[in-house]
Nucleic acid binder design. Structure first.
Lengths: 132, 132
DNA sequence: GACGAATATACGTCTATACGTATATTGACG
DNA sequence: CGTCAATATACGTATAGACGTATATTCGTC
């Protein structure tokens, strides 16, 4: 992956906020949507953009698409994600997103699903809807 | 300076190459132009873009405009420039630019002017043209 | 003051992309 | 199979920005 493509992914605020969230762990589309307060199409399109360029990976679990940062990042991507992590602490938008993220992850069903995803285990929970 | 603006500056290849060169020290427009092999207008416009957003500073010395990275960078900018520095070593374009930069800086008149600029000293050289 | 070198700006065109609305797809479940 | 939830895609519009051509500006020199 070329360096310029990394920056092209980072140069939009919505994508920046998405990646910032994914630094904390995998998330499903509907939660990203809720946290950012953007429309479903918009989030989905930006995620597609990121996926096409190898900035994120997606995996379907039942009805939900779980997005995450790639398991294996190039050194360039790794360096930039680390840099992003450091830089995001100062701006209010990102802190706000993190606060909302905590709320979402504190929901038991959500946490269960995401934990299973993280471990690569099949999702066994029987929650019908993750989105409230 | 907002983080997103930094990335917007970095997301164009020409600007990325310019900033990469400026990491090595101040340069005048005509040399950036020669090194990148781009038209004068194009380089000038990208430099304006960068200057408007505080990514570079410019100072006139006689006929030449010397561009450089800001004396005082925000922590975010600093972090990203450092990251850029690290990431640029792998791609051929940047290595090629560096090679051409060595040639330019090896010209005595150029080196003299740039050194005086670096020290904040008035430019005393009497070279008529820095561009060959 | 005319001229040349270095640089910047104006203006027009073209392309990428951001986003809204509508519609399609995919999976679970009764 | 119909329906719903979650997600993706198609299509149209608007805007940022990349770039070329022409022209202006700024400075030094004769």
């Amino acid at each position: 992956m070329k360096l310029i493509q990394i920056y092209q992914c980072l140069c939009d605020e919505t994508r920046l906020r998405i990646l910032h969230l994914l630094l904390r762990g995998p998330l499903c589309v509907c939660h990203i949507q809720k946290i950012l307060g953007e429309s479903q199409v918009n989030i989905s399109r930006h995620l597609s953009y990121l996926k096409e360029r190898g900035m994120v990976e997606a995996e379907r679990h039942q009805n939900w698409m779980i997005y995450r940062l790639p398991a294996k990042c190039s050194p360039e991507l790794e360096a930039n994600l680390k840099c992003l992590q450091d830089c995001c602490t100062t701006e209010a938008v990102f802190r706000g997103d993190l606060a909302k993220l905590q709320k979402v992850v504190s929901i038991r069903e959500v946490r269960e699903v995401l934990e299973q995803v993280c471990c690569g285990a099949p999702v066994l929970g029987k929650a019908k809807s993750l989105c409230r």
